Structure formats: structure tokens, C-alpha cells
Computed example of a mutant assay.
Amino acid sequence: MQIKPSASIRQNYNEIADLCRSTGEPVYLTKNGEGDLVVMDIESFTRREKMLKLREELLAVEEDRLAGRTGMTPDELDSQLESIIDEVEHGKKSSV
């Protein structure tokens, strides 16, 4: 985890941008010693958002399963999950 004072974003934008891109991790900015903002590169942000979406979808499927609702065959589920994982890993549009 990288922590920088908020003034560093104004003074060292390129350095912070390079740090975000090279590590793939967010940089936490503080103001007066307190947490204020989080900065991350767009690729990491997009990947994180897709992973959160996948997690929400998997939780919904698990809730349906626990409630006894049926949806798709194991082969259909496997195909859908492979498509979602491919989208997350490679940024491709899912056909689901």
C-alpha cells in the first residue's frame, strides 16, 4: 500500500501515475494526516469493477441455489463463468 500526502498529487502527478500503473495498486492520499482520496490507474480500476460485478453475480447465483431455484445446467454455468472470467482477464465483451 502506497500512502502519500495530498500535496504530492499536485507536485508529482506523473510520478504517482507511474507508480499506480507499475504496481497496479491504488495510492492513498492523506490530507492533514488523515485519509482523503484513493488514486488508481484506469486499467486496475476497470479490472476491480469487473471483479466486483462477477462477485455480485456469483453471490446471486449462490442465493438462488440455496433457495432451491434452478437456472441452468452445469455445462451452461461453466460456459457462462468462462465467458465472464475471460471478460475480466482480457477486457472482452461477454456474450452473456
Rank of each mutant, 00 (worst) to 15 (best):
I16L: 03
T30F: 00
C20H: 02
A67K: 07
D36M: 14
L59G: 05
S83I: 11
P5H: 08
K93P: 15
G91V: 15
M40A: 09
A60W: 02
E82K: 04
L59K: 10
P5K: 12
S44T: 06
P74Q: 10
V96Q: 15
D18C: 08
M51Q: 10
N32M: 07
Q80V: 14
I85W: 05
A7F: 09
E15N: 01
L59E: 09
P5N: 05
L54D: 14
E62A: 11
E25T: 04
N12A: 09
I3G: 04
M72Q: 10
L54G: 13
E62N: 08
D41P: 05
E87M: 05
D64H: 09
S22Y: 08
S44L: 13
E62M: 13
L19E: 06
V38I: 10
E63R: 06
P5E: 02
S95C: 05
G91A: 11
L77I: 13
T46S: 10
T23C: 00
T73D: 04
E87G: 08
V27T: 02
K53S: 14
I85H: 04
S95L: 07
S6D: 12
E25Q: 02
R48W: 15
T73F: 13
S79H: 06
T23R: 05
M1G: 06
R21T: 10
P5R: 10
D64C: 05
G24H: 02
L58M: 15
A17T: 12
I42K: 13
E76I: 06
S79P: 06
A17F: 01
I85Y: 00
L77T: 05
T46F: 09
R21C: 01
S95D: 06
R65I: 13
V38D: 12
V96T: 14
K53V: 07
S94D: 11
M1C: 15
L81E: 11
E49H: 12
Q2H: 06
Y13M: 02
E15H: 15
L52N: 12
Q80S: 02
I85R: 08
I9N: 00
D75V: 04
D75W: 03
D36V: 12
K92A: 14
V27Q: 02
R69H: 06
S83V: 10
G68K: 00
Y13Q: 11
E62L: 14
G24Y: 01
R69E: 08
M51W: 06
A17D: 07
A7Q: 07
T46M: 14
E25A: 03
A17L: 02
D75Q: 02
L54T: 11
V27G: 04
S8L: 04
G35K: 04
V96W: 08
E76H: 07
L37G: 04
E82Q: 03
S44A: 07
M1S: 01
